[in-house]
Amino acid sequence: MNFKIHDKLIHEVESPEGLLYRMIIIYTCFMTALIAILFLVIGDTTKINFYFFINSCTVTVMVWFIRKSFNIFSRDIHLLAFRVSLFFLLNSSLASMAGGLNLIDRDTASVIAALLYVPAMLVIIHSFNKFIAYVNHNYKSAVSLSLTDELTGLPNRRHLNVKLRELESRAGTICIADIDHFKKINDTYGHEAGDKVLRNMGLRLSSFVKDEIFISRSGGEEFAIIIFDNTNAEDVIRNIKTSVSDGCNGSIGVTLSIGVAIKQKEDSSSAAITSADNALYQAKSAGRDCIMYGQRYRR
């Protein structure tokens, strides 16, 4: 399923954002036209100078900048403050334009422009800092979601690959654990019951997670366990298997088949994974509900 997110202004007439944006455009056009008309009526057209064109360009840029700010979909108060400050800067440029055309005294125009410009810049700086914090928070959340399995809450296969790269130059233990007869659970009790078993597995396994113990859902009913530096590896594996078998899944009995590979520093992670997979296959062939250790492979 393909979802497209368009980077466009939220400009529907019925939306508050669309109405506010249109009001700003109408206001800018009205004020610019008013300044131009007043200048043509009471001003000296021979005094149009480069300063006028600079202010016209500044007004255009400010309107464009305000428009781009509406591409950001957020209800955060700091974004509203940012837009208000941009509106102040727009009016500062309009005041400078009027002063440049001698419609108002230039000193007065400069004071008005400064009174609008200084607080606007202070609010922009403050809002920008808040916006950076907002973006960073959402970026971290997005990264966390991309590395987390939605159903179990455990790390996913992508996160597992990151940990395998970390393990490449270290010693450790890699386990592949598989829920026995999971297809039968789905066929007998339904997929909703199967999902519940997986969620319970996630809760059980997450209680074993520590700095040196990483557990992820590697796919389907399969889970990968990495124990760095072989810290009490055998005890951890036995405790995981016992905890899952004793876990509460209603009337559904759950057991695990586990394949284990011991990785030395000089071994590759991919070779250890292969060894653990082979050990898991042996565990299933031996009748399931058991732990098998694979032989050591090197790349």
Rank of each mutant, 00 (worst) to 15 (best):
D7T: 15
I185G: 10
S169L: 08
N232C: 12
S268D: 02
S245C: 13
R296M: 15
M62S: 13
K184A: 03
S268C: 03
F131M: 15
F70N: 10
Y51E: 11
C57S: 14
F208D: 03
F65D: 01
A81F: 00
D187S: 04
M62V: 12
H191Y: 02
F87K: 00
A283C: 09
A177E: 08
A272G: 04
R204T: 03
P16S: 06
R83N: 00
A95F: 10
F87C: 13
I26V: 12
K130R: 12
H126A: 09
R204M: 02
N102Y: 14
S15Y: 01
S206V: 06
N55C: 07
G99C: 05
S216D: 07
G18N: 09
I24L: 02
V111D: 09
K47E: 07
N138V: 10
R238W: 08
R157C: 01
F73N: 15
L20M: 11
I66R: 14
P155A: 15
E222L: 07
A224G: 10
D235M: 04
L256G: 06
I215Q: 15
E168I: 05
S218G: 05
D289N: 15
D246A: 04
A113V: 04
A81P: 00
L79G: 00
I273A: 11
F3D: 08
V197G: 01
V123G: 00
L154C: 12
N55L: 03
E14Q: 13
I35A: 15
F214C: 11
F128I: 01
R288M: 09
M31C: 03
Y139R: 10
H137K: 15
L154G: 06
W64K: 06
T242W: 15
I174N: 06
L9A: 07
I26Q: 05
I54T: 04
D76W: 01
F30H: 05
R67Y: 08
L34G: 01
M23P: 04
A98K: 02
L19T: 14
D149R: 13
V143K: 12
L205Q: 11
E212C: 04
L147F: 02
P155E: 13
I125L: 15
V254I: 14
V236M: 07
R83I: 00
D44R: 08
D277Y: 04
L79E: 00
T28M: 01
T148N: 11
T255F: 05
D211L: 03
I174T: 00
E17H: 14
L116I: 01
K184T: 02
K184V: 03
I37M: 08
I176M: 14
S270D: 11
H11V: 14
N129W: 08
S245E: 15
I213R: 13
H191R: 08
F65G: 02
F214L: 08
